[in-house]
């Protein structure tokens, strides 16, 4: 029983990270219809920023988690730069060019990090120095609660932002019809850049959450995390914010449960099979609406 509860706690923690990363994918995909492969590498950028700024923060007598502010700033700059330099010129060239450019940017960031920081993994210092609670044989690190709370808070905030604010409305309008959005006075380029900025900032927060559980950063840490989170986004319904949350949590729980109860070596294979099954059975995902392809 305690193992079961423990697995749920671990799964939720894992799922919250997936959900936050999935949000980044979902927002960009929702507006541009492209898989931003570089998103996973924004997380890597965020993690390295944390690695380098936490000691400085601690030395300055400030709490370690404040470095996330620096990480968000760095990620936003990187994200917007990538969008402006690489994605914007190929925006009209079709999905194939967009996909290759995204892939190229991902490779670029990964290999730039390899040149700058070296291949050795770096271990990130403790971010939240919070006590670990023990209840009836269940270990519950309080940082998990913080992680989950941050995740839910961001999710909720973003949902309100998209539904209620003018900019949020513009974000929903652009993917519907770019030309019509321009006609009614929406600056499409600015909306897209803002989306990238928000997505990249989320990646920095995801990096904080990831590093508080797995305090290690490598140059390719983002790749698999990114693909799994994309699967979470697809499972939840791409373009849908609550969907990303649900998808992330489901994938996180499934992975932990399969790891603990079924087949430890196979849990990743199961995650990937979920993607194939979802795409074949219900491509719109759990929360997504079914949009037929236009001729």
């Amino acid at each position: 029983m305690s193992l079961f509860v423990q697995s749920i706690i671990n799964g939720l923690n894992q799922g919250a990270v997936y959900a936050l990363v999935a949000l980044g994918y979902t927002m960009v995909y929702g507006i541009l219809r492209m898989i931003n492969f570089a998103h996973s590498d924004f997380i890597m950028v965020g993690s390295y920023t944390l690695f380098y700024t936490i000691p400085l923060m601690v030395a300055a007598g400030m709490p370690a988690w404040l470095s996330v502010v620096v990480a968000i700033a760095v990620c936003v700059v990187v994200g917007v730069t990538v969008e402006q330099v690489a994605y914007k010129p190929v925006r009209g060239a079709g999905s194939m060019s967009a996909l290759i450019t995204a892939l190229a940017m991902s490779l670029f960031l990964e290999n730039l990090a390899l040149v700058l920081f070296g291949a050795n993994p770096k271990s990130v210092p403790e971010i939240f120095s919070l006590p670990t609670l023990k209840v009836l044989g269940i270990t519950l690190p309080s940082k998990y609660l913080v992680t989950l709370a941050i995740g839910i808070l961001i999710m909720f905030g973003l949902h309100v932002f998209i539904k209620k604010t003018t900019l949020g409305k513009a974000m929903r309008a652009v993917p519907e019809d770019k030309q019509a959005s321009t006609l009614v006075g929406i600056n499409v380029n600015r909306v897209i850049t803002t989306t990238f900025a928000i997505g990249s900032g989320l990646a920095a927060v995801a990096a904080l959450m990831y590093c508080s559980t797995y305090p290690r950063c490598t140059t390719e840490m983002g790749t698999m995390l990114g693909i799994k989170s994309f699967i979470a986004a697809v499972l939840g319904g791409i373009g849908s914010i609550p969907g990303a949350m649900i998808g992330g949590i489901v994938i996180g729980l499934l992975e932990i449960f399969i790891k603990v109860y079924l087949a430890p070596g196979w849990y990743e294979a199961i995650t990937y099979s979920i993607l194939i099954v979802v795409l074949l059975v219900k491509p719109a995902g759990i929360m997504g609406k079914n949009v037929g392809e236009k001729v």
Partner: peptide, 18 residues
């Protein structure tokens, strides 16, 4: 397009795990 690309990634990963 995109979805097929991601399915092939998933497939290659399944092969690796297997």
């Amino acid at each position: 397009g995109d979805y097929l690309a991601i399915v092939t990634v998933a497939f290659a990963e399944i092969v690796r795990v297997a």
